[in-house]
Structures are given as structure tokens and as C-alpha cells.
Computed example of a mutant assay.
Amino acid sequence: MKIKELPDFDRPREKLEKLGPKALSNLELIAVLLGKGTRAKDVYQLSKEVLECVENDFEKLNFTTLMRINGLGKTHACQILAAFELSQRYLFQDGIKIQNASDVYKLASDLKEKKQEYFVTLTLDGAARLIQKRVVFIGTLNQSLVHPREVFADAIADRAAGVICVHNHPSGNIQPSREDIAVTKKLVEAGKIIGIRIMDHVIIGKTTYFSFQAGGLLNNGEH
């Protein structure tokens, strides 16, 4: 049934207004996000295709994937991704404590299948609870590209006590390169000046990880 054929009380927006979001199905929630369909597709039909895309592989959901849905459009794709990202950030933020590199590996497991290198920061409060997870840089790690200001600007805004750096090696080899070590040393020294500690730098591989802290490389950046 098309949305226009539904009685007012059973339309997603009206239902949300009267009963709250928990009363809506996943399809209806997406329909609220989209607002309207196109000439060719009713909002329910479009929402159904979005929902199938989400359910098939939520972890790999991105702008390119959503744009494959005929009629969705850039604005709707951005609205969906923004809504999902915001909800995930608050879910991640709720009491997650980072106790070791294994916790980091679980939290950054989405990096395992990336074809490019992603440099991510986890900002932490004084009790080692996660404040925020952010992508800082995409591409091969390089001292001139990963600058301390990009890493610490958000940490300062978060009033973070510490930062954990994370990046992936698409090759699967988790051993740190000379550039990895140089970048880490630079960030550690900058952190000492700013007063925000680099707690660890974790390299994510296909099935395992490498921790600079556990490997004894965090203080001086040398083997």
C-alpha cells in the first residue's frame, strides 16, 4: 500500500508524533528519514530498498552503496548515513571502557576489510572511557600528512585525557613500518607538550593486531 492510501493515523510521521519512535517499524523509520519518494517510487518502496541494503551488510553501508538505489538521491543518502552515524556514536559512547589493545581491535574491526589505510583516533576520558571515534586520514601513513593538529584538535575539543591511534594495514602484515614508528614518535612528543597522552597506537590486520604499547615502542618510537 502506498503512503497516500493510508489513513492519517497510520502514516509514519503521524504515528511517530502520537506514539513515539519505538512504535514504528524499521521500514517506517526510514520512511520518516526520507520524507517523500519520487515520481517513480513511493516513499515506502524506496524505504524498502534502503532497508534491504542496510540488512544485507550494515558494516559496509556507505554513500556509494546507497547511491546504487535508483531514485534515492544524494540528499537522502547523506541523511541516512548521518542519522546512522549519529546513533552509533552515542551507542559507542555509552560506557565503553578501553582496557587493552584487544578492546581497540574489537572497536575498530570495521577497518579489517578496508582496501585503503585508515587512520582513526579514539579519544578517552580520565577513566579510559570512549568519548569519540573519528577517521582522521585516509591513505598511506606519512609524517607530512598525519599532523598532530589533526589528531589533537578534536581531543582538545573533547577535553580528552588520552588518545589511542589506530590504523589498518590492508596487506595484512601488522608489523609497523618506519613511517608508522616515526609518526607515532611525533604524536607522542606532541602529546607530552599538549598534556594529552597517546595511550597506544594499534595496527589492525586481517585477523590480528599490533600494539605499540605492548610492543614497547610507544615511549621512544624505536625498535
Rank of each mutant, 00 (worst) to 15 (best):
G73C: 09
A108H: 00
P170F: 01
S177P: 05
E17L: 15
S109V: 01
S211P: 10
G205E: 01
L217Q: 08
I156A: 04
N26K: 15
L145A: 12
K2T: 11
F137M: 11
E189C: 06
E49R: 09
E28Y: 12
H223P: 15
E222N: 12
V163I: 15
F92Y: 09
F152I: 08
K133R: 14
K4S: 15
K15A: 08
T75V: 14
L124R: 03
E14S: 13
Q132N: 08
G71H: 05
C78K: 09
L130C: 02
L46A: 10
I193E: 14
L16F: 07
V188T: 13
N26M: 11
L122F: 12
F63N: 03
F9W: 13
L124K: 03
G216Y: 10
G205C: 04
V146F: 07
A83Y: 09
L86Y: 11
A40F: 08
E17K: 15
E28V: 06
E17Y: 13
P12Q: 10
R159V: 03
M199R: 13
V136R: 09
L72K: 03
A157W: 03
A101Q: 02
E113H: 04
A101N: 02
C78T: 12
Y105R: 01
K48L: 11
H147D: 07
G71I: 05
L91C: 05
L107V: 04
V120N: 00
E14H: 14
L217P: 04
R149I: 15
E52S: 10
R68F: 02
E55M: 11
Q132W: 00
G191Y: 04
L124N: 03
E150H: 13
E28H: 10
T184S: 15
A23T: 08
D94P: 00
V188C: 13
M199S: 10
P12T: 05
N142H: 14
G20N: 03
G71L: 05
Q143H: 01
K112M: 06
G191L: 08
L107T: 07
V54E: 08
Y90F: 15
G126H: 07
